[in-house]
Design a protein around this nucleic acid. Structure first.
Length: 857
RNA sequence: GCCCGCGUGGUGGAAUGGUAGACACAGAGGACUUAAAAUCCUUAGGCUGAAAAGCCGUGCCGGUUCGAGUCCGGCCGCGGGUACCA
């Protein structure tokens, strides 16, 4: 029955019901309410101009939660906004000559119009954009408060410097050590920059992870490792030339016997001092500065060093002297910028020692395995017992951890070192030498120094009349904007031209959503009511930086009075969705200017005889499978086509159905059509039921209703635990049951209504249509969520598999409460069991009630 | 390099330590149709076998357990993060 009256026409249905929702303002959150509040938030998007499948997945997940919470009687806040500052806008400005602001606002408009048809239950009345002065003026106010509270300071830090373009480069803009536009070798350069004192909160940020029960364990673990608490010791090594001792930090002082050299950072004061009259050393240091600033690049680079010529005394063995080397692998930012090398028990030190002919001597060996050091360092787990050789504190058979503790105690007792707890977490550098960001509201005055702006002068607006015809920060060359009055003495000063890292913008937007038009950064009452975010949803790629910065910012906002005490952890529950991936198509025959690879869009290539080629040029293409969808790699699938072809409900159903949401999913076009077929089928099944009128046997009715209650139970459970794909599988199964059921129309209508309601968070438009078709008055969106009847969930008779030695050989059907002995008896009388036993008695019979029987022979 | 994940049929995937492959996609066969589309029904991990049935099987190697996709140890491969992409 597929005539015109009952055909599923997504386009018409979706437009109609969106209009109904909008008119009724069903998605605008209430103020004070008797209902419990629920704040569900998806990570807000960067306005690139096109939504992609990752967005659709993210917002659909959030929307299902929001709609389900609405149906279960919550006052729901579900806002949306734009993370609107960033690098891409400046690139567009340079490439296309458009102002970053114009480009960004156009993109917001475009993306919004692409999102609207998806029918998300968003409260658009709260929309914010971080690039809007009405947003960033509050950020500037908080900056001033945090500066005055001592949470922000200035220090020198290195950046990637492009010597040809004369500009600072982001790590992403450095490709194989070269500037992405100029192709010039990138250098490190030191600048004075602004920092948040996040490291002051290391311990708190670490400890509070324990309370985040509804965060994924992996994210807590990643943050724990990122903060990187370690207990170690600072040991001064005395120079034989009488100079200032060099202080090393070590977490493995138990390996001291094996120490054979000291390695100090190229940026260490001693290195710098020695370089002044050591040309080789100066050249070595200069060489290490020609590397990008990423940790990965530094760690992967070949470990190199140079002997400084100075030596230090071993702190324990009086007659032993150690050479001091400068090593490119020693970070000035961590510990003291100096380490002692113990080749026997550290692989990196061993490689270094072998390369430069340094000694390798064991501090301990494994019990019963006393061997010389080969090419592999002996690094046992800290809990593993080892045997120490001539340990100065007299310990011998202990674990490494016990030895570390004993050694630290011994050093402290003798006054040879100081136990220290250190964290890997570094302060958050927020300065960016770029135009399209929130201006840092300070003035440099010759007499007063660095002075924060007066709050009444905020916002310090970005000037509009800037040009991008040359690289570098346009603010630097905008004299009219830079010239200003010193807020303190009134004489002339110059504005800070650094803008803020966009992570600052995204570290508090979730609080701004609670009072998006407030005259102060936050509204105490609204923040107290809505915070914390009950459920935060976003990509796992944000597991560390964004989430850690937000956790810090909540603390900083609390100290400066912008957040109530209760909101110290901003996100009660976190869900990290997997990415939507897609193959990348890289041109294998041609490169762009400057050696950059050329990437092709999926629709530009085709498969031909096992090879993939560019349709137009017939060039061969290298296929890089399942990579994060990224605008710069052109491997982005446009959901707009799918919505136009099949409708929003199909797109929503599809992104939820196939993969568990925490897992990455490789996008393929085939699935969307299947999703649409199914929705068409549901439309047909329910239409038929709505227009039929039959009675049937009570048995058939009961069977169907029992299945209905099971489905309500399972789907509700699935929706509450992000098991959407499994929930959808149950809905498929129930549609099949319903369409084949011989039940009467009353039972069928009841079941159809349940099906429609259970689908509503996922396919809200179709559900509204069918809900109305079944004769319901109100909206399914606001109808109370169905509740399963517990009594209907249990089966009296259950099937139990019979295993023989752990392999399934038969199954029996027994009443659910049958006692163990009885079950065992029935199991042993099964043919397959008798055959396998062949007259013998079983060694053991394990009966797990309600589950399984295992006969051990 | 380091930290964190992931790996199951042709494909997406399901499975509180308890019947591996639910539910789908693609496939094969059939019904309906003049035909096609749509729809409905059947089938389907691999190997052997006519069947009954048996053997193998969750990246690889090993362990714990009556029982392991699931827990533990060691590998391999892929992905994310690595502090200036967001």
């Amino acid at each position: 029955m597929t005539d015109d009256m009952t055909r599923y026409s997504a386009g018409e249905i979706e437009a109609k019901w969106q209009e109904v929702w909008n008119k009724a303002k069903v998605f605008q959150s209430e103020g004070a309410s008797d209902k419990p509040k629920y704040y569900v938030l998806e990570m807000f998007p960067y306005p690139s101009g096109r939504i992609h499948m990752g967005h659709v997945r993210n917002y659909t997940l959030g929307d299902v939660i929001a709609r389900h919470k609405m149906a279960t009687g919550h006052n729901v806040l579900h806002p949306m906004g734009w993370d609107a500052f960033g690098l891409a806008a400046e690139n567009a400005a340079m490439d296309k000559g458009i102002h970053p602001g114009e480009w960004t606002y156009q993109n917001i408009k475009d993306m919004k119009s692409q999102m609207k048809p998806l029918g998300f239950s968003l409260d658009w009345s709260r929309e914010i954009a971080t690039c809007h002065p009405e947003y960033y003026r509050h950020q500037q106010a908080m900056f001033i408060d945090m500066l005055e509270a001592g949470l922000i300071y200035r220090k020198n830090a290195v950046v990637n410097w492009d010597p040809v373009d004369m500009t600072v480069l982001a790590n992403e803009q450095v490709i194989d050590g070269k500037g992405w536009r100029s192709g010039a070798e990138v250098e490190k350069r030191e600048l004075t920059q602004w920092f948040f004192k996040i490291s002051d909160f290391s311990e708190d940020l670490l400890e509070a992870l324990d309370g985040l029960d509804d965060w994924p364990a992996k994210v807590r673990l990643m943050q724990e490792n990122w903060i990187g608490k370690s207990r170690g010791i600072e040991i001064p090594f005395h120079r034989t030339d009488g100079g200032e001792p060099i202080v090393c930090y070590s977490t493995r002082p138990d390996t001291m016997r094996g120490a054979s050299f000291l390695a100090i950072s190229p940026e260490h004061p001693v290195s710098r001092a020695l370089a002044e009259d050591n040309a080789d050393l100066a050249a070595f240091i200069a060489e290490t500065r020609k590397m990008d600033t990423t940790e990965a690049a530094m760690e992967k680079a070949e470990k190199k060093g140079i002997d400084t010529g100075i030596t230090v005394k071993h702190p324990v063995e009086a007659d032993k002297e150690l050479p001091v080397w400068v090593g490119n692998f020693v970070l000035m930012d961590y510990g003291t910028g100096a380490v002692f090398g113990c080749p026997a028990h550290d692989q990196r030190d061993l490689d270094f020692a072998r390369k430069y002919g340094l000694e390798a001597r064991n501090a301990f060996y494994l019990p019963g395995d006393e061997v010389e050091v080969g090419n592999e360092a002996l690094v046992p787990a800290k809990s593993e017992p080892v045997v120490f050789i001539d340990h100065f504190a007299g310990i011998k058979d202990v674990t490494s951890q016990e030895a570390i503790d004993a050694t630290i105690d011994w050093f402290e007792e003798k006054g040879l070192g100081t136990g220290q707890v250190k964290y890997r977490l570094r302060d958050w550098g927020l300065s960016r030498q770029r135009y399209w960001g929130c201006p840092i509201p300070v003035v440099h005055c010759e007499t007063c120094g660095v002075v924060p702006e007066k709050k009444e002068n905020l916002p310090i607006r970005l000037p509009d009349n800037v040009s991008f015809d040359q690289p570098g920060n346009p603010l630097d060359r905008h004299d009219a904007w830079r010239q200003c009055e010193c807020p303190k003495c009134g004489e002339s000063g110059v504005r800070e031209t650094d803008t803020m890292d966009t992570f600052v913008d995204s570290s508090w937007y979730f609080v701004r959503f609670t009072a998006p038009r407030a005259e102060t950064p936050t509204d105490a009452a609204e923040a107290a009511y809505w915070m914390n975010v009950d459920q935060y949803i976003g990509g796992v790629e944000h597991a560390i930086l964004h989430l850690l910065y937000s956790r810090f910012f909540a603390r900083a906002m609390q100290i400066t009075g912008h957040l109530p005490q209760s909101a110290v952890e901003p996100f009660d529950a976190l869900f990290t969705q997997g990415m939507v991936t897609h193959a990348i198509y890289e041109n294998a025959e041609r490169k762009a200017e400057g050696g950059r690879p050329i990437y092709h869009y999926p629709e530009e290539v085709e498969e031909k005889g096992g090879d993939v080629i560019v349709k137009e040029t017939r060039e061969r293409v290298k296929v890089i499978p399942s990579a994060k969808m990224s605008k710069s790699k052109n491997n982005v699938v446009d959901p707009v086509n799918i919505i136009e072809q099949f409708g929003a409900d199909t797109a929503r159903w599809f992104v939820l159905s196939d993969s568990p949401p925490e897992r990455d999913v490789e996008w393929t076009a085939a699935g969307a059509e299947a999703a649409h077929k199914h929705l068409t089928r549901v439309h047909r099944i329910v239409s038929d039921i709505a227009s039929s009128d039959e009675t049937a046997s009570q048995e058939a009715d009961e069977l169907l209703l029992k299945e209905m209650h099971k489905t309500i139970h399972d789907v509700s459970g699935g929706v509450e635990s992000f098991g959407f794909n499994a929930a959808i599988a149950k809905l498929y199964a129930f549609s099949n049951t319903l369409s084949r059921s011989k039940a009467g129309s009353a039972a069928k209508r009841q079941s159809a209504a349940a099906l429609v309601q259970l689908m509503a968070p996922m396919t809200p438009h179709l559900s509204e249509e069918l809900w109305a078709m079944l004769g319901h008055d109100g909206l399914v969106t606001t109808a109370p969520w169905p509740v399963a009847d517990e009594a209907m969930l249990v089966d009296d008779q259950i099937t139990m598999p019979i295993q023989i030695n752990g392999k399934r050989r038969a199954e029996i059907s027994v009443p659910k409460d049958m006692d163990k002995a009885e079950v065992e008896k029935i199991a042993l009388s099964e043919d397959a069991v008798i055959r396998a036993l062949d007259g013998a008695t079983p060694k053991k019979v394990i009966v797990v009630p309600g589950r399984i029987v295992n006969v051990v022979i």
